[in-house]
Design a protein around this nucleic acid. Sequence first.
DNA 1: CGGTCGGTTGATAATAGTCAACCTCTGTGG
DNA 2: CCACAGAGGTTGACTATTATCAACCGACCG
Lengths: 246, 246
Amino acid sequence: MALTQEQRQMIVRHPLFSHFKAQAQEELLADALVRDYDTQALIQRQDDPAERFYLVQSGKVKLYRISADGKEKVVEIITAGNTFAEAIMFMQKSVFPVCAEALEPVKLIGFSNRLMLRHLEQNPQTCLHLLGHMSVRLHQRLDELEHLTLQNATQRLALYLVSQVRDRAGDSAEIELILPKSLIAARLSIKPETFSRAIANLRERGLIDSRARQISIPSIRNLLDEFAGGQQHTEHKASIIASDSL
Amino acid sequence: MALTQEQRQMIVRHPLFSHFKAQAQEELLADALVRDYDTQALIQRQDDPAERFYLVQSGKVKLYRISADGKEKVVEIITAGNTFAEAIMFMQKSVFPVCAEALEPVKLIGFSNRLMLRHLEQNPQTCLHLLGHMSVRLHQRLDELEHLTLQNATQRLALYLVSQVRDRAGDSAEIELILPKSLIAARLSIKPETFSRAIANLRERGLIDSRARQISIPSIRNLLDEFAGGQQHTEHKASIIASDSL
DNA sequence: CGGTCGGTTGATAATAGTCAACCTCTGTGG
DNA sequence: CCACAGAGGTTGACTATTATCAACCGACCG
């Protein structure tokens, strides 16, 4: 089961592979494994050993954590064209730190961690790219941590809505929620009920207008200003790493 | 102002430098910059441009974020022998994502990002080490995210106490808090008052015994079991990376 | 001796979670 | 064509958790 031309394109263009030499690319492609999952299928369980990382060819994948008492925290939603579980290969103990579930019919392309590591050893360029990637990721987690601790449910929702705006040309915008509201709520670490109330709250105050999954924002500026400047107007991007936990 | 022998030792033994060739090490050492800060001194402001990363020679450094409305979130406490801000050098826009403040008199050794990057380009070994480092860090943030959303203040405190146990030989332990309680509280994202009540709570239930900063845990197992197994007994270590935010 | 810092304790308020009812689509089968 | 079931979403009443404000305690310092 060789890869289609379309698949090869997608892979080779991905920053994780684009800097490799043709030969290295070929080896990785030869080793790639395509897998399909139905909606709701469990792709990988938390604490399973991880030998591969994945590129999502189509569909959406939900990454979440299950705590000892069964509660679930959605960590991320991975959409087509993006990879997940790349960072695990650099750790000694290679187990999946999260569960992965298909939100819709999903096609994944899996790559061997071992093989990838071998090629990385000879390709500092891609290593640096990966480091860049991970820095961004780390920074995003830092943002999320801040949002969780320093902002309330409504503020987080507002920030999420703004982040969903595609065209930042004007001060007003129309957006369509790409996921069921209950999932967005989970991603923001709030209950669907609270999510619903937060939407209602913003609507009552005239900051947004919503019909089902269509939401219009008359003024992005107003929406952000409402919350003490909500990150001084979408500025600040960077990340930090530090070698010691308290 | 050349480095002392002691400083050179500390640097060269650090995993970030230990894999470089002698010559590369020398170049980095030659470029290193030593700086002193008094207690409470502001080392770096959030959003300042960052040209260097730092190794803490002595003292403790508090990394924290300030949100637009002035609230502070303590991200990490860096102790002697550890580095911070290494991840920033991999990002295009190099600004500090957090503030850094000296908790006590601090000696820092700063290294040029540019120079370090140049050497990394020729040393995939260290790149991979760095990637490992960052994976661990990413995973820790994931843990923290889980703890913040899925556990309450008392559970987080219990987990913190257990994490502070040095000698895991027996089931009981004695620990000494290395930081003022109010700072630990900040790190756990709770108010000092709540922290105090949580301690009282655990004490009332006989799960810990505390006199000032000396805390004894009769049974670590009991303490953890109290909270639905609190991460199935200190297991699970790994991290994930994913290339798309919701 | 007074002051201040770190910490504790109490009363109260804000925020979000829980539980339950209900609503509104949408697709299915009678 | 209509009833009905079920999923996703909304709303209301109530509860739990944590923050806030304020008083207070004890230790250490000048």
